[in-house]
């Protein structure tokens, strides 16, 4: 099939950038969205033009790199799907597809569709760890964990840090990501020693990195490829209040 692509081209972080139109031909329905861009890039290289820069790594929906907003939706029209798992059968012959990078002050564009997500790494560094003793491996299942907690923690841990929640949020808030990261450790006994410090530090980093605040619009949950739910944000709020008001930890 034939498509008209409108892709955000930006040479570097200082460039203003603009949407450029490219026609592509010979796209088949079983190609993935990224393969479709590969086709375009082959064509651009042949024409001695600069290929479109985009992030990708695993191409199987687990690394979270393939960030792009497709026709106004992060990761495109399919629910619970990353861009690499989106297939061209989602489009029709003759469609116009607009592709833009994540838009957030805390995710500056490096080139074209590639954004810098160091801010997420900083949030993880601020508290996404636990204390474990070295030595012999402990017996599996030696810590009793409630089944619902284990499941909720596992669901939260499914977050791949892609940033679609930030891209979808009208406030560019990172709360769904932060909520998932805090929840997944707060629900487990292994997360207990740093529980208060973790949420306080991660929240502080989130705010300092220039993410917006949550207004509970629910756009993040709708666009998250891993189905991370808003209950994680509520849990984050609870954890934060608990730590800030109810613990000896310093609120910075």
């Amino acid at each position: 099939m034939k498509l008209t692509l409108k892709i955000w081209r930006q040479r570097n972080s200082n460039d203003k950038g603009k949407l450029e139109t490219y026609p592509v031909d010979g796209i088949t329905t079983d190609m993935s969205f990224l393969e479709m861009i590969d086709v375009l890039n082959q064509q651009l290289i042949k024409d001695k033009k600069d290929p479109v820069a985009f992030d990708h790594d695993c191409r199987e929906g687990i690394c979270g790199m393939c960030s792009m907003v497709i026709n106004g939706r992060p990761h495109g029209p399919w629910e619970g799907t990353t861009t690499c798992q989106l297939h061209m059968r989602a489009f029709k012959d003759g469609d116009t597809v607009v592709i833009e990078p994540w838009r957030a002050a805390s995710f500056p564009v490096i080139k074209d569709l590639v954004v810098d997500r160091t801010s997420f790494d900083k949030i993880i560094q601020a508290g996404g760890y636990i204390s474990v003793n070295t030595g012999n491996a402990v017996d599996a299942n030696s810590l009793p964990i409630d089944k619902t907690n284990a499941e909720d923690a596992f669901d939260a841990a499914a977050c791949i840090g892609c940033g679609a929640c930030v891209a979808a949020c009208p406030n560019s808030s990172g709360m769904l990501f932060l909520g998932a990261k805090v929840s997944h450790l707060a629900l487990l006994p292994q997360g207990e020693p740093e529980r208060e410090k973790r949420v306080l530090n991660m929240m502080k980093t989130h705010d300092d990195e220039g993410f917006g605040g949550c207004t509970n619009t629910g756009a993040c949950e709708a666009e998250c490829p891993k189905g991370i739910s808003l209950t994680n944000i509520a849990r984050l709020n609870r954890e934060y209040m608990r730590a800030a008001i109810g613990s000896e930890e310093e609120v910075r």
């Binding site: 907003v69 026709n71 106004g72 607009v98 833009e100 838009r103 756009a219």
Partner: peptide
């Protein structure tokens, strides 16, 4: 801002 946006929220 986005050139195209298709909000999924109210």
């Amino acid at each position: 801002k986005y050139a195209v946006s298709k909000p999924s929220n109210s």
